[in-house]
């Protein structure tokens, strides 16, 4: 750990879920983790974001001045005390502020995540301004050393936030941010699994809530540069198959609108999302080439593909070999020797 690292933490603070879970126990674990990060290196920076119903708030950041400095306490290290009291006070205040009719609103996890990204972007911009000439409008920001975001979640997926979550993931990739996620209760959050997978972070499901601090310190305290040398849990089972827009079924082979990229499980004459009409010819071709439906996922036999649909549906590169010397495009043997 020779370089300082930045950590942004997004905490899911949905009061309806924290009814059944112990918030104060959880917070004490989390504060322990914050302190460990702050203590690991003097220059380490920390920002904490809270996701409340229909609202997201920055609870603490080490770069901005704090309004109320806590009174000195002989029994605590001042930087720890500062983080702890600020976070706890802000959470308590925000929870009180929540209006009754907002209680059932979905938690603004995306808002908190995007704010965390904006904050990291700000740090990146500031770091760039300090080191390089600001006239250099290069597209790639000089990356901050090891920025990462930890999402502590207690909620299941919110389907309507799929596109914003994906956009956040791609922005994180651009800023070279690693996203880690720790889920404490509920069904596994597929969006967060995708986020961690696509940014090279790890996803942890904390089965024992009383051991949260241990999960966090063992797996998520080390910055990404160190993780290569230690074994951090990753997940292998993420499935990137898509669901159709019409029935929410998982599809292997889908029909996609070329205008809005909506996915359908069968050929449709009109796109239900953007109202585009598709040519009859394509429909006929697609119908004739369609694999017999319904086909269960477990017994997928290789279907003989009719080649009639190919010219219209799949853009294929020309078969002309390149003039270069690379051998990628040489004819290759058909290899299909693995068990599905």
């Amino acid at each position: 750990m020779d370089r300082p690292s930045h950590l942004s933490v997004v905490i899911d603070l949905d009061p309806s879920r924290w009814d059944t879970l112990n918030l104060s126990l959880f917070l004490s674990h989390l504060l322990g983790f914050f302190n460990a990060h702050v203590a690991a290196k003097h220059e380490n920076t920390l920002a904490v974001f809270g996701a409340f119903p229909a609202k997201s708030v920055m609870l603490y950041s080490s770069s901005d001045p704090i309004a109320e400095i806590p009174p000195n306490d002989a029994n605590s290290y001042p930087p720890f005390k500062l983080v702890d009291s600020t976070v706890v006070n802000r959470i308590a205040r925000e929870l009180e502020l929540i209006a009754d009719d907002d209680l059932d609103a979905p938690v603004a996890l995306v808002g908190a995540l995007t704010k965390a990204l904006c904050y990291i972007n700000r740090l990146t911009v500031e770091a760039n301004a300090a080191t390089t000439s600001s006239t250099d409008q290069s597209l790639e920001p000089v990356a901050l050393p090891d920025p990462r975001i930890l999402i502590v979640s207690v909620s299941p997926d919110i389907t309507s936030s799929y596109i914003p979550v994906m956009n956040s993931i791609f922005s994180a990739q651009k800023l070279k941010v690693t996203i880690d996620a720790c889920q404490i209760s509920g069904p596994e959050n597929v969006f967060l699994q995708q986020a961690t997978h696509l940014t090279g972070g790890s996803f942890i499901y904390a089965e024992r809530q009383d051991a949260l601090l241990q999960y966090l310190i063992m797996a998520l305290l080390s910055p990404p540069s160190v993780r290569r040398t230690i074994a951090v849990p990753t997940q292998d089972k993420i499935d990137f198959r898509a669901t159709c827009f019409c029935h929410k079924n998982i599809v292997d082979i889908g029909f996609v609108c070329s205008v809005c990229l909506s996915i359908f499980c069968q050929p449709v004459p009109v796109c239900s999302t953007c109202r585009t009409k598709f040519p009859i010819k394509t429909l006929q071709k697609l119908n004739s080439s369609r694999p017999p439906l319904p086909q269960s996922n477990s017994s997928r036999a290789p279907t003989p593909s009719s080649s009639s649909a190919r010219p219209s549906t799949t853009p294929r590169p020309p078969a002309t070999p390149p003039t270069g010397s690379d051998q990628r495009h040489l004819p290759r043997s058909v290899v299909n020797g693995h068990a599905p």
């Binding site: 009409k277 799949t314 290759r332």
Partner: peptide
């Protein structure tokens, strides 16, 4: 023209699965 495209969504093989030859590079 707008069109309906046939697309396949693949199954990802985990890193721990038994090795096999790929069709693109062998």
């Amino acid at each position: 023209s707008a069109n309906l495209m046939l697309m396949g969504f693949p199954t990802r093989l985990p890193g721990a699965s038994p090795p096999s030859l790929c069709v693109c590079h062998s």
